[in-house]
Computed example of a mutant assay.
Amino acid sequence: MEIRTCLECGDPLKGRADQKFCNDSCRNAYNNKKAGGSTNFMRKINRILKNNHSILEELNPEEKTTTYKSTLTKRGFNFTYFTNTYTTKTGRIYYFVYDQGYAELEGNKLMLVKNEE
């Protein structure tokens, strides 16, 4: 009979025939190593996008409003990251974080909008 071992620590396994790990911490450690590297980079960007979306959503409850760029900056908004852009016929560029967006106006003001799609 073949001796089955934990994929993480190599200890012998006892129990179910399809068991791969000896405990939850070995399973978590194995999966964290497997998902590391470039996935950590994606997780970091997703955290930034979620934070940006939360800030826009909080400041834009009526689905269209204006605010100052400094207000977003003070709340930790990162202007480098957004999910897409939309350019109007007049040339105004809206930067969107999922369904929440903003466009730059005169005097460091921003117009916040919500995309209804």
Rank of each mutant, 00 (worst) to 15 (best):
N31C: 10
L56M: 10
G107R: 12
V113K: 02
A103T: 03
K20L: 15
L105I: 13
K64P: 00
R27S: 10
T73K: 14
K14E: 09
T67P: 04
S38C: 04
A17N: 08
H53R: 09
T39P: 00
D24A: 13
G15M: 14
L112D: 01
N32Y: 04
Y95N: 03
T90F: 11
E106Y: 08
A29Y: 03
T5W: 04
C26Y: 05
D24S: 11
A17W: 14
R4S: 07
E57L: 15
E2W: 12
N52W: 05
I93W: 03
D24M: 14
V113Q: 03
F77N: 01
L49I: 14
F79K: 02
L56F: 05
N31P: 08
K20V: 12
Y30P: 01
Q19M: 14
E104K: 09
F77Q: 04
G101Y: 10
E63P: 00
T5E: 12
S25P: 01
H53Y: 09
E58S: 12
G15T: 07
V113P: 01
L13Y: 06
G37Y: 07
N23K: 09
M42G: 01
V113H: 02
K109C: 10
E116V: 06
Y94W: 02
P61W: 05
G101S: 11
L105D: 02
F96M: 08
N32R: 05
K20A: 13
T71G: 00
F79E: 00
D18E: 10
Y81S: 06
D11K: 14
G91K: 07
L56H: 02
L7F: 07
Y68F: 15
E63V: 08
T90R: 13
Y68N: 10
L13R: 01
G10K: 08
K64A: 08
F21K: 05
L49Q: 02
N52L: 09
I45Q: 09
T67R: 05
E58Q: 11
K44P: 01
T80Q: 08
L59G: 01
M1G: 09
E58I: 14
E2G: 03
E62A: 14
G107F: 13
